[in-house]
Write a protein that binds this DNA or RNA. Structure first.
Lengths: 196, 196
DNA sequence: AAACTTTACGAACGGTCGTGCTACCTTCGG
DNA sequence: CCGAAGGTAGCACGACCGTTCGTAAAGTTT
């Protein structure tokens, strides 16, 4: 598509940079991101990449937003199409485990990694990560509440949500750190026992 | 104490540097460690700190080892003094939660943070982190196995160990990221339900 | 007392970082 | 058809990075 005017408007380049940025950040962290590295790998100029975002922090924030869109499209949106309550809860857990296991981000769950990276640092990046993470936790919690109030389950919704979220993240952590898929099998067994 | 020969032998300086290094790394990661920063904060010369370790990677490995010693003294050793089986299992969980909650490392659990940081990167640092993390996981697993074979509990030991480890790490992650102590309360409830 | 090792320092290296500034070039509005 | 707007590149900056080298003390050994 030569002469595409929209390319000049930069949205395409922005997307190109961000697609690479989320992958890099999922492995090396948001601090591991560097303008120069992105520019070299994508055969752009460092100043061009810089001008697209204005500062490194803005690049980090844009990367979080881009990762959040990808996360939602793989985990949240599919689950929302399933009937509320227990079926949706099962769908959340399964799509999340697949999202981690299939390495949608090469370093495993993006938000697990950057959450651990910025958990104890103040600033806008921390807040953005916490907001995204908290938003997904709230989604699990609400679905647990639905499942209980619909009579699908007998449990404390908040406690159940904490447990399910914990099991998924532990599977991601163990699998990425040690390799193999055994952690996912353990998580599926534990989740299944809780959602029987 | 002027004229203390052992001080000159550098072990004291090494300890001084490592004590600061584990704290810095628990917040900013092992990549966030820098020779210059450590030297400035401790009022030493950068080359002096460098000479103590020989390379940045060696500093990172030494930092992991120092953190592991601290971790063991706060979590593993106290639990080992408790009777095997269920009592020891309870002790592990409680001492680990206290270790996280009391911020023995200012950024929360050291191995949670550096585990997430290096999970998807190859190299000696990754291997050292995985070894430490795996060693503690094995300790939990063995204690679960004892508890079951002693008749204290009826459960799949491996699954139980995975669940307990997951709950603790999730409490650490949520508490450090969002502040507050609610996550620890949730974890204690979930653990208590599993160890009844 | 002389020889040697260890500890720590200061200066400097090549490199990369994030960030400006300037200029080119394409696209778009009047 | 022209001028404004904006994406992109080139270049330079100051700061910090890990690393190396030479050197001055201090401690240990002989």
């Amino acid at each position: 598509m030569p002469g595409d005017g929209r390319l000049a408007r930069g949205d395409a380049t922005r997307r190109l940079v961000l697609r690479r940025a989320v992958d890099v950040a999922s492995v090396d962290g948001l601090d591991g991101l560097s303008l120069g590295r992105l520019a070299t790998e994508l055969e752009l100029s460092k100043s061009g990449v810089f001008a697209l975002f204005g500062s490194k922090e803005e690049l980090q924030l844009a990367t979080i937003e881009a990762a959040w869109e990808i996360f939602r499209s793989h985990v949240v949106t599919p689950a929302r199409e399933v009937a509320p309550g227990l079926p949706r809860l099962r769908a959340i857990c399964e799509s999340w485990l697949e999202y981690s296991e299939r390495r949608i981000f090469p370093g495993g769950c993006f938000f697990f990694n950057v959450g651990a990276e910025f958990d104890a640092r103040p600033g806008r990046v921390h807040d953005a990560v916490a907001a995204a993470s908290g938003s997904f936790a709230a989604f699990i919690r609400e679905t647990c509440l639905d499942a209980v109030s619909l009579g699908h389950l007998d449990a404390d919704p908040e406690l159940l949500a904490f447990e399910l979220h914990a099991l998924g993240r532990a599977a991601n952590a163990d699998a990425v750190l040690n390799g193999g898929t055994q952690a996912y099998a353990l998580a599926r067994r534990a989740i299944g026992a809780r959602l029987s």
